[in-house]
């Protein structure tokens, strides 16, 4: 069952407290971020209904927001999500080649997840890193000035981290 821990519920309350009384719906977008982080990196219908119940709003009010914004995942994603920007300024600096390289290295198409559930590849529109292009977002971090070698390093680091965690 989907439920925040006591600590997270305190965080939820502090989010709601940022708004005047009766305006708790404003906490919806931050709460969906929190829920996505806590409940497996995506928003299931159960998760969205739960978030709605915390704010006292109808499920449809949550769905219409969750489907509008591009940062919410509406289906499961891999452990590491590569969101590569391909808008004009990144394109000028070779983002299409970087996307091609990631596709061939991981053996997946854009929008797919590797069979081991480790990596998902997405393309995204401008993330405000145009001067440091090409770039991608990974979780909350930006990886900028991408080259093929840098992509290799990032993939290897993700795999190493995974091995260490599974050994421990």
């Amino acid at each position: 069952m989907v439920k925040f821990s006591e600590d997270k519920l305190k965080e939820v309350q502090s989010m709601i407290d940022r708004y005047p009384e009766g305006k708790q719906k404003s906490a919806l977008i931050p709460l969906l971020h929190l829920a996505q982080e806590e409940f497996g990196g995506w928003l299931s219908a159960e998760t969205m209904d739960y978030v709605g119940s915390l704010l006292g709003i109808e499920p449809i009010e949550v769905y219409e927001v969750a489907t509008f914004y591009s940062m919410y995942n509406l289906k499961p994603v891999g452990k590491h999500v590569f969101e590569v920007c391909h808008t004009g300024p990144c394109m000028l600096k070779g983002s299409d080649d970087i996307i091609g390289y990631i596709k061939s290295t991981l053996g997946i198409k854009v929008g797919e997840t590797t069979a081991d559930g480790m990596f998902t590849l997405k393309t995204v529109e401008c993330l405000g890193a145009c001067g440091y292009a090409p770039m991608m977002q990974m979780g909350i971090d930006y990886r900028e000035h991408l080259t093929e070698a840098r992509v290799d390093e990032i993939i290897a680091a993700c795999r190493n981290k995974q091995q260490k965690t599974s050994k421990a």
């Binding site: 305006k23 404003s26 919806l28 931050p30 971020h33 709003i57 219409e64 509008f68 591009s70």
Partner: peptide, 27 residues
Amino acid sequence: IYVQRGAGAYICGEETALIESLEGKRG
């Protein structure tokens, strides 16, 4: 002063869309 994070929508840079989003709605 409070910081509110959006969730990926260029349109929220338009001031009334931003206000809608800050109210917890679609932009």
